[in-house]
Amino acid sequence: NIFRVLGDFSHLASIFILLHKIQQLKSCSGISFKSQVLYMLVYITRYLDLPWTSSPYNFIFKVLFISSELYIIYLMARAYKPTNDPNLDTFHVEFLLGFAGLLALLFPYKYTILEVFWAFSIWLESVAILPQLFMLQRTGEAEAMTAHYIAALGMYRALYIPNWIYRYFSEPTHKVDTIAVTAGILQTILYSDFFWIYYTKVMRGEKFKLP
């Protein structure tokens, strides 16, 4: 459905915006390396089924997400390392890993490796933006491209919510995936504050600056 496709393309767009920002400005300043590593972990643990992915659509997106994330990490850790300031990127990711690990181990749909890792990736994704938002809060402002990146990334999961509602009514089984939906809503709530400032400032041509 349209929400799902818009969501996936928003996700893809966010990655292109981030790559464009890093290469255009020759700098990864303002980008949280910790969040990027968490996203890498999200993709690896969620796409363990990559070799068995039957849909070409999903297969292509999975490969694109994994490879582009690897490239972003390479750019941040090697090519543009001097522009990456670890002193601003101080969020304690062990809390996020503990949160996702605990929920994945306590409430997976099944106790199989794939299911536990899948649940872990869903919960981890829901909070993986926190180091980035924390860094934004410390610097108090962001370049326009960084703000566009975060907005597109947040929109992706927000668009999955109407997708789930649409699927609930349009598919005869009326399935609700409690893990994905709960985590998706949590993820979108975490962005809400950012969305508000993005909407009131950046979309009106102003700089992204915290009040």
Binding site: H11, S55, W118, A180
Partner: peptide, 10 residues
């Protein structure tokens, strides 16, 4: 099977 529906998502 709750999970199958969403396993076809990204």
């Amino acid at each position: 099977e709750a999970t199958e529906a969403v396993k076809d998502e990204l």
